[in-house]
Computed example of a mutant assay.
Amino acid sequence: METLGGPGAMVATILDSVFPPIPSELILPLAGFTAYRGGMTLAGAIIWSTLGSLIGALILYWAGAALGRERVNAIARKVPLVDVHDIDQGFEWFERHGRTVTFFGRMVPMVRSMVSIPAGVERMPLAVFCLLTTLGSLGWNAALILGGYALGSQWARIEEWAGWFQYAVIAFFVVLIARWVRQKLKGRRTP
């Protein structure tokens, strides 16, 4: 990022989107720190990183669209401890809550990347997918970049704060899943 400026932030966020082990909680505050030091503008860091998040999400969206549900299930059958029935239920859940998951999922590690695949498989309208991905990524990216910028040379401290926000988003999804499980169990009891 120091060398490439904004395009470097874009490349880093593309990699973060496609390869989940690369943590945005470190990349984005570093982009803010780079802006703090004058390596790029603050607005440039936010715009370029959000563009990178969208491009990475589109790569996975198109992968999901190209694979389709049957191929995703075939791949899932080969993964140890993965139940294809759970994958099917995940797709059904995505059909009902896809827009919410696409937006808020941009703020949750691993979900940030993986949500694009069912969006592609289910052929979520591309304009809707791009809008929700951009807005969710913009909020997350801006918060971490602004945090890194505000902290200046202590930019690494933002990772601690980002963790608390992630816990809140994860709790939101746990509540949604719990409601879904409760409804499923309630449906089984009804004769």
Rank of each mutant, 00 (worst) to 15 (best):
V108I: 15
T133R: 03
P23N: 13
W180T: 03
M114Y: 15
G139R: 02
V111R: 03
I117E: 03
I158D: 05
R112E: 09
R69W: 02
L81C: 02
K78T: 12
G32E: 01
I46Q: 02
P20V: 08
A35R: 05
G56W: 06
W140K: 03
V174K: 00
I177K: 05
Y36F: 15
W155T: 07
A9H: 06
H97N: 14
F103A: 09
L131A: 15
G56P: 11
V128E: 15
V181A: 02
Q166L: 10
V174G: 03
V11W: 09
G32Y: 04
L30D: 03
P109Q: 11
L4G: 09
V128R: 12
G6V: 02
E92K: 04
V101I: 15
A66Y: 08
A74G: 13
M110G: 07
I46D: 02
G56Y: 01
L26W: 08
I87H: 14
T133F: 08
P80D: 10
I158G: 03
L60H: 03
L60N: 09
V72L: 11
V72M: 12
G163L: 15
P7D: 05
R112M: 14
I22M: 06
V101W: 04
F94W: 04
A66S: 10
I158Q: 11
G5K: 02
R96Y: 00
M124Y: 01
C130Q: 09
I75L: 15
P125T: 14
A57Y: 06
P20C: 08
F129Q: 13
L138Q: 04
I75S: 06
K184T: 04
F172H: 00
A168W: 01
V181F: 01
L4R: 00
S137M: 05
F104M: 06
I87Q: 10
G5Q: 07
W155C: 08
A35C: 12
F104Y: 07
R77M: 05
M114C: 12
H97E: 13
H85E: 14
T134C: 09
Q154K: 11
E92Q: 13
F91S: 11
I46W: 00
T190M: 12
E92I: 00
R123L: 11
Y167R: 11
Q154I: 00
K78N: 09
V108H: 06
T13G: 00
I59L: 14
